[in-house]
Design a protein around this nucleic acid. Structure first.
Length: 821
DNA sequence: TCGGCAGAAGTTTAGACAGCATGTC
DNA sequence: CTAAACTTCTGCCGA
């Protein structure tokens, strides 16, 4: 079937596809067309990765748009959103517009409602529904990429409920679900009332095999000799073998999957010996440049180790890397500059990074709940193997599992090579998942009674595949009790069917996209502050919202608390105004410190906890008692309460955040907490998000001291910029980060206003003579005449700045590791 | 007494979604 | 119940 023979697509699309080189549709694509994707028919396509799934989605979306509709493409990862957007933008010549919406990136100012195709993550779509995005009911086609992720216990339920909601709002909606080959694609099709296209067909041959001893045995019965000498590294031999086998005039690159970050790093180091000896002079030069770029991303050991490996054509890839690191590695690997990447599962499902040879070195991974090393899911291994074979570059792809004995070889064949992937199973009927989705479903008007709620939940995958009819109802009831106790929903038990309604806070929580348990924890924590200084202050008391009050003052205690309203003149974001800070210092209520707030949001289920290492328990128990007064809420008993462990883990995270807000260098933080630059950014981002939510909650809820709102905002801003209080103003200037702000401050330039007035020589000196940077900064600070022509840097400013930048930000009188190793 | 070294014992362990505002003289 | 790569500790040896 030729693309140009398809009907129902926008004019010229078929021809454009042929011009791209799509002369014939692939068999699964043809089956999809036969099943009616271009006629608005719903479809589940369960086919291998890289077998043209995206084109099936495009055919559905484009034909839907041609009929006057609007399409939504749901991706599982933020990183994939921009990849897909770029891919779909090639249809803009045919009048199709594309927009993206994810948590950290919205299409540049474009109003989504006007776009024909919108790419978003499932959480973002869920959030848009909760917030009543007007274009949701205009959708005529929704594509769900990697639907098999409904099996994921954390994020699966969101996808499941979101699809159910979209279909409910829009009964005629064409639903196209793209899935890996799984055990029960028919059940998914059944759930979505869709046709099923299932196939193992791949455009590039994929051979899967197991290496043991001196050869790889492939699933097609063939063998390839790859002898491994005694004491030689099996992985290294296989990587070398791929590189030494030229196809298309080039050796093949490899992707090695391992089970821990540390293993990824040490494998990359070792494999650098293999790749390093096979580079051309030009490649060495380019790699050296790339390594410099990597070092420039971050000052941490991780960054340094990565750069060292990359210089030799080898790299590692895991979530501890900064996102800039990741894309540098991914791009260079695609460009065939980096010859081998050792990765954790980040690369198995993320952006498209194919390799000629995939080596699955570790097939078991530590799992605490399992109590040891757990074999990977068949689906996961298949996903890894599916990365083998680059379309247009490799004549074939090879996926090799490593065995260290004949027995293991047989086990790997049985377990992975011959095995079908596990069936997908809904994880909806679990409390954490339902807690969030029951509240959202009630709050956004999908259900007003208990019966209505249960019948809505009947549209989920869970309902179509469970045999236990009562389970969903019973978990729902447990969750409803929880939501009622915490004041998020009201229940009316008088009528025939129990009535349900979200309270004001319930609505807020749902719109903020918080787990209700996080919201409850935050509210409890913040309320302890108000309760602490006046027993008489309760939620029902009179709340003064005096529009004339400039902020909390000494009298505020009389009423127990003061609320800020938008009218009180504090909406200008001037929380760091010294006068205000001084005023609140006069308050004798319990002090709300950044650490207290960081600890509070860190112990919320929306924050991923840091692992307590040996010795940490002792260390943080001590910190916990030292700073107990700052922690919001009661510390669980060290000896009787199992929650104590979590409390300490949250304290560790809280301290990391505090360090960041105290300008401790990234490399010190990385070392102190045993994390990578990517983890630091991740923790800070999450905390920022939660503190913003906390700010909104604190404003919306009665019984929380207005001063608390100010403290929350300041703690959040300090995280955002990574600076101490006195630098908040400076760090707000574009191109001024925590480092430059500190240098400027040490040179006597303490504010944005100073930047406009200061001696240019001092500014230039503080910025270490970087003329262009200094000009940009002056311009961004709003200086009339930012030009630095003929200005010489003031060397004393530069010296002061250097001294300031080297100071360890640990000046709170706590025990400090004042050594440099 | 000290340093070097080998082997024993102990330690650690993947990933990643969400909101929001708002500018400048 | 299950692993494996590291790091740190321990004890032995020789000088």
């Amino acid at each position: 079937m030729e693309p140009s023979s398809l009907s129902g697509l926008p004019a010229g699309v078929g021809e454009a596809l042929e011009a791209e080189g799509v002369a014939e549709l692939y068999p699964p694509q043809e089956a999809a067309v036969d099943a009616g994707v271009t006629d608005g028919e719903s479809l589940v396509a369960a086919v291998p990765t890289a077998s043209g799934k995206t084109l099936i989605a495009e055919l559905a979306m484009l034909s839907s748009i041609e009929r006057g509709g609007k399409a939504l493409y749901i991706v599982p990862l933020r990183a994939l959103a921009s990849e897909k957007k770029a891919e779909f933008e090639r249809w803009e010549d045919h009048g199709v517009t594309v927009g993206v919406s994810t948590g950290n990136y919205d299409s540049d100012g474009e109003w989504l409602a006007s776009r024909d195709v919108i790419v978003a993550t499932s959480e973002k779509v869920d959030s848009l529904i909760r917030n009543g995005a007007p274009w949701i009911d205009d959708l005529t086609c929704v594509v769900s990429d990697e639907v098999h992720l409904v099996d994921d216990s954390h994020r699966g339920p969101t996808l499941e409920v979101t699809l159910a909601k979209l279909r409910k709002v829009n009964p005629g909606l064409q639903t196209v679900a793209l899935s890996a080959t799984v055990g029960n694609a028919d059940v998914i099709a059944d759930w979505l009332d869709a046709e099923l296209v299932e196939s193992d067909w791949r455009p590039i041959e994929l051979r899967t095999g197991v290496h043991f001893g001196n050869a790889i045995n492939f699933d097609d019965g063939s063998q390839r000799e790859v002898p491994v000498e005694r004491g030689e590294d099996q992985t290294a031999r296989l990587v070398a073998d791929a590189l030494d086998t030229e196809e298309d005039g080039q050796g093949g690159s490899s992707l090695v999957f391992v089970n821990s970050r540390r293993n990824a790093e040490s494998a990359a180091r070792k494999l650098g010996e293999v790749t390093g000896s096979r580079l051309t002079g030009e490649e060495r030069d380019r790699l050296r440049e790339l390594a410099e770029e990597i070092r420039g991303v971050s000052d941490t050991d991780t960054s340094e180790d990565l750069a060292d490996a990359v210089e030799r054509g080898s790299a590692f890839h895991h979530a501890g890397l900064a996102s800039e690191h990741r894309s540098l590695v991914e791009d260079a690997f695609r460009d065939r500059l980096i010859k081998c990447v050792s990765a954790t599962p980040t690369l198995a499902a993320g952006v498209n990074t194919p390799a000629r040879r995939v080596i699955v070195r570790d097939w078991r991974r530590y799992d605490g709940e399992f109590g040891g090393m757990k074999p990977l899911d068949v689906l996961e291994v298949h996903q890894m193997c599916g990365r083998a074979g680059r379309p247009g570059l490799d004549p074939y792809g090879e996926a090799v599992l490593l065995a260290n004995s004949a027995d293991t070889r047989e086990e790997l064949f049985d377990r992975y090579v011959w095995a079908e992937a596990e069936p997908v199973r809904s994880k909806l009927a679990a409390e954490p998942a339902l807690r969030t989705h029951v509240l959202a479903t009630v709050a956004s008007g999908f259900a007003a009674t208990r019966d209505g709620l249960l019948s809505f939940l009947d549209n989920t995958l869970y309902a179509t595949q469970t045999d236990d009819e009562g389970r969903l109802a019973s978990v729902t009831d447990t969750v409803l009790d929880y939501l009622e106790v915490n004041g998020f929903v009201e229940r009316d038990r008088d009528g025939g069917s129990e009535g349900l309604a979200a309270t004001g806070i319930g609505h807020t929580v749902s719109r903020l996209y918080l787990d209700p348990m996080s919201a409850a924890e935050i509210l409890d924590g913040l309320r302890t502050v108000a309760d602490g200084d006046d027993e008489g202050a309760g939620a029902g008391d009179f709340v003064p919202a005096d529009g004339a009050a400039p902020g909390p003052d000494a009298d505020a205690d009389d009423a127990g608390f003061t609320t800020y309203t938008r009218a009180d003149g504090d909406a200008d974001g001037d929380a760091d105004d010294p006068a205000e800070a001084a005023a609140s210092d006069g308050d004798d209520g319990p002090e709300v410190t950044p650490l207290g707030l960081y600890h509070l949001v860190s112990r919320t289920p929306d924050t991923y906890q840091l692992y307590l290492k040996s010795g940490d328990r002792e260390e943080y128990t001590e910190v916990c008692y030292e700073r107990e007064a700052e922690l919001l809420g009661d510390t669980p008993s060290e000896y009787e309460d199992v929650r104590f462990e979590d409390w300490l883990a949250a304290l560790k995270t809280g301290r990391l955040l505090e360090d960041w807000a105290n300008e401790v260098d990234e490399d010190r933080i990385a070392e102190r907490y045993g994390v990578g630059p990517g983890d630091i950014r991740g923790k800070v981002d999450t905390a920022e998000w939660l503190l913003r939510a906390a700010e909104t909650l604190a404003r919306d809820v009665e019984g929380i001291d207005g001063d608390v709102v100010v403290r929350v905002r300041e703690a959040r801003k300090r995280l955002e910029y990574g600076v101490r209080e006195e630098l908040l103003d400076l760090a707000g200037v574009r191109n001024v980060g925590r480092k430059r702000a500190r240098r400027l401050y040490e040179a006597g330039i303490e504010s944005r206003a100073d930047l406009r007035e200061a001696d240019k020589a001092v500014v230039l000196g503080a910025l270490r003579g970087r003329e262009r940077t200094a000009e940009r900064i002056l311009e961004n600070a709003g200086r009339e005449d930012p030009s630095l022509d003929g200005v010489d840097p003031d060397s004393s400013a530069s010296a002061a700045a250097t001294a300031g930048a080297d100071a360890d930000g640990d000046g709170d009188g706590q025990a400090s590791l004042g050594d440099f190793g």
